[in-house]
């Protein structure tokens, strides 16, 4: 039933220009973080009533936000939601008051368990994760099936979609980058590299493998293809908490703590930038991340379960087709 609900939720193309709200502003049992979604190239006010809310911002690439955003969808009360859906359940952080920094808090539930070793899930919990992850994959595939030229301008040749799903108390997380129409060779290479970084790093996952070695697989692949690995986003443990230990860096020189053990669930989600600059910055919406040099970026993510003998990709879909 919820599955059908999801299908409805994601039908139609309106999701391509929103929502921008992060998951605090947009509490949703189906936390459809289609963030970093696609934005039509535009600036200034247009005849159709859309506008760029930050006209003075020094954009690093050709993409501009198009407001107004689609309305935040309200989740009906009968759908259980994670605790971070309530504003009150956030860590309260203040900031250096004279600076303009807003440090966004994390859900209290995540804060409470931070620093704890990764949780080993029971068989029952693993089944719930499996179910949530399968649903999330379905949502992403449906979204992807709507990707086609015409909904964007010529300047855009790839779109990024990210689905985070909360089902029966467990979270799933996955994302992918899709080509839109014909794309150039660089964009193809970038998307292939990002996918290959993820696939190769999944191959080393098994009991006894070290979390810190994941980035040692990813970064050399990125470099060999003239790309760089974004450092500020990492993979993460995921279970009844959306983000928890282990922390999974995608870069080689890291001090990540932890050995993989059966029953552990985490994501790997390397974000790969074209060129050597891995840094990213945020638009004033505090949500949209772009590369500092405006170059293209691609990302893939899967949620993984470490099994007794190896690894199970809980969010697995059809084999990736090279663009």
């Amino acid at each position: 039933m919820l599955n059908n609900d999801l299908n409805l939720r994601y039908r139609g193309k309106s999701f391509f220009n929103g929502p921008f709200g992060n998951f605090r502003a947009e509490p949703s049992a189906v936390s459809q973080k289609l963030h970093k979604a696609i934005h039509v190239l535009a600036s200034g006010k247009l005849e159709d009533g859309t506008y760029n809310p930050f006209p003075d911002y020094a954009y690093t690439g050709p993409i501009r936000p198009v407001y107004p955003l689609s309305k935040t969808r309200i989740v009906p009360d009968h759908i259980p939601r994670p605790d971070y859906a309530d504003d009150g359940k956030y860590q309260v952080l203040s900031q250096c008051a004279a600076s303009d920094v807003v440090i966004s808090g994390r859900p209290l539930s995540e804060v409470k368990r931070s620093g704890q070793p990764p949780r080993i899930l029971t068989k029952e919990e693993q089944d719930k994760m499996r179910k949530a992850c399968r649903l999330a994959r379905e949502v992403l595939d449906i979204a992807a099936s709507h990707v086609r030229p015409g909904i964007t301008t010529d300047e855009i040749d790839e779109i990024f979609a990210h689905v985070s799903l909360y089902f029966e108390g467990y979270h799933a997380d996955l994302n992918a980058t899709y080509p839109v129409g014909e794309i150039d060779d660089d964009a193809k290479k970038l998307i292939r590299t990002a996918r290959s970084c993820l696939d190769e790093s999944i191959k080393i996952c098994k009991p006894g493998a070290l979390i810190r070695d994941i980035g040692k697989v990813i970064e050399p692949i990125a470099r060999a293809n003239g790309c760089s690995t974004v450092r500020t986003y990492t993979g993460h443990g995921i279970n009844d908490l959306f983000h928890c230990s282990p922390n999974v860096p995608h870069y080689a020189k890291n001090k990540a703590v932890g050995t993989m053990k059966p029953g552990m669930v985490f994501t790997i989600e390397p974000m790969i930038n074209f060129g050597s600059n891995w840094d990213e910055i945020h638009w004033p919406d505090n949500w949209t991340a772009t590369t500092v040099d405006g170059k293209k970026s691609a990302q893939f993510e899967e949620t993984l379960l470490i099994t007794e003998t190896g690894v199970e990709v809980l969010t697995a879909g059809k084999p990736f087709e090279l663009p």
């Binding site: 952080l93 203040s94 900031q95 250096c96 008051a97 004279a98 600076s99 440090i103």
Partner: peptide
């Protein structure tokens, strides 16, 4: 919460222990 002092030093109070706030400063 920021005091800038004659010797060029700066004194600031901060609640978050992370690095982002200091980098922003």
């Amino acid at each position: 919460e920021i005091l800038e002092l004659a010797n060029g030093c700066l004194c600031c109070s901060i609640k978050d222990s992370g690095a982002a706030a200091i980098e922003k400063l």
